[in-house]
C-alpha cells in the first residue's frame, strides 16, 4: 500500500517534471517561431529589393511570379543598375546634396541645441519653465503643420530653391534640445564648480569640461539629426523642386513615378538610400534607440 503510494507519487512527480520541461520547450519553440516569422516579413522584401537591384532589368520579376527562392538572390548578377544610376542618371548629385544637408544640420543644430540644453540643465533663470514648456510644446506640433505656412513665407521672401530654405528650418529641433538637457543634468556639479573657481568662463566650461564627457548624447543627437535629414522628404519636395537641389528621398520618389519600367535602377537607388541609415544605426543601435525612445519615457 505504502509502496504503491510512493510509486504513485514518484510517477506523478516525474510526469509533472516532464510536462514542465516540455511545456517550457513548447513555449520556446513558439517564441522562436513567431520571432522568425516576423523577421521573414521584415527581411524578405528587403532581400528581394537588394537582389533585384543586382539583376538585369528584364529579369527583375522573373522568379517572383510565380514565386521561387531565386527571387531573393541575384542569380544573374550584374551591376548595370548601379552603373546607370551613378553615371547616367547622376544619382551622385542627390547623394552629395543630402550629405551636405545632413552634415550641416548635425553641426549647426548640434551646437545650438547643445547650448540650449545646457542652459536648461545648469542655470536657474527667470522664465525657465515657460521656455522649456515651449520646447516641449513644439515637440507636440507635427512638423508638417508648419510646412505649408512656412512655404508661403519662404516663397514670399523668394527663397524657394535655395540652400538656406533647404537647411535652416531643419535646424530647429526640440527633441535634440531635450536630449541634451537630460544628459547635462546628470553631470556632477563639483566638476563645473571646480572649473568656475579656476576662473573659466561658462563657454569654456561648456566646451572643455561638458562636451568632452558627453560622447553618448553627441552620438545620439548626431545620428538623429543626420538620419532626420537623410530621410527627409516633404519639406525638400516643397521648397527645392530644382533638380540641382534634389535630395535622396525626393530622387527615389520621382524615380518611382518617372522610371516605372527601370525597376532595377529604382531599386538600386532605394538600396543606396536604405543602406546609409542601416550602416549608421546598427553599430550605434543603443544610442539611436535611447534617443528615439527617450522622448516618450522621461517625463
Amino acid at each position: 500500500m505504502a509502496e504503491s503510494l510512493a510509486v504513485d507519487v514518484a510517477e506523478r512527480y516525474t510526469r509533472r517534471g516532464k510536462t514542465r520541461i516540455s511545456r517550457a520547450t513548447v513555449q520556446r519553440v513558439i517564441v522562436y517561431f513567431l520571432l522568425t516569422l516576423i523577421s521573414v516579413l521584415v527581411i524578405v522584401p528587403l532581400m528581394w529589393a537588394f537582389a533585384a537591384s543586382f539583376t538585369p532589368n528584364d529579369e527583375v520579376f522573373r522568379y517572383v511570379f510565380p514565386f521561387s527562392w531565386r527571387a531573393l538572390f541575384p542569380v544573374d548578377f550584374t551591376v548595370e543598375a548601379y552603373r546607370n544610376l551613378f553615371f547616367e542618371e547622376g544619382f551622385t548629385r542627390p547623394i552629395a546634396n543630402t550629405l551636405i544637408l545632413g552634415f550641416s544640420t548635425v553641426i549647426l543644430s548640434g551646437v545650438t541645441s547643445a547650448l540650449a540644453g545646457f542652459a536648461f540643465a545648469r542655470f536657474d533663470f527667470r522664465g525657465k519653465d515657460v521656455l522649456f514648456g515651449l520646447v516641449l510644446l513644439t515637440f507636440m506640433i507635427p512638423g508638417e503643420v508648419t510646412m505649408i505656412p512656412l512655404y508661403i513665407v519662404v516663397s514670399r521672401l523668394a527663397l524657394v530653391n535655395t540652400w538656406t530654405a533647404l537647411i535652416v528650418p531643419g535646424l530647429a529641433n526640440s527633441l535634440v534640445i531635450f536630449l541634451f538637457r537630460q544628459f547635462f543634468i546628470e553631470i556632477p556639479q563639483d566638476l563645473i564648480d571646480a572649473a568656475r573657481v579656476d576662473g573659466a568662463s561658462w563657454l569654456k566650461v561648456f566646451a572643455s569640461i561638458v562636451l568632452p564627457m558627453s560622447k553618448p548624447v553627441l552620438i545620439t543627437a548626431s545620428l538623429l539629426l543626420f538620419l532626420g535629414q537623410w530621410n527627409s522628404f516633404f519639406w525638400p519636395l516643397l521648397v527645392a523642386p530644382d533638380p540641382k537641389l534634389r535630395v535622396v528621398q525626393v530622387a527615389v520618389s520621382y524615380a518611382y513615378e518617372e522610371h516605372k519600367t527601370l525597376w532595377n535602377q529604382l531599386l538600386a537607388g532605394s538600396v543606396v538610400a536604405a543602406l546609409v541609415p542601416i550602416l549608421l544605426v546598427l553599430p550605434f543601435q543603443r544610442y539611436y534607440v535611447s534617443g528615439l525612445v527617450g522622448s516618450g519615457l522621461k517625463e
Binding site: 523577421s39 538620419l227 518611382y256 529604382l266 536604405a274 543601435q285
Partner: peptide, 24 residues
C-alpha cells in the same frame, strides 16, 4: 539579433519602404 532585424523598417525611410512595397 531579432531586435536588430526589427529595427530595419524603422531606420529605412518611408519613401524607400513605399517604393519596395509598391513593386511587391
Amino acid at each position: 539579433i531579432f531586435r536588430s532585424v526589427y529595427l530595419l523598417p524603422v531606420v529605412i525611410s518611408i519613401n524607400v519602404t513605399s517604393t519596395i512595397w509598391g513593386l511587391l
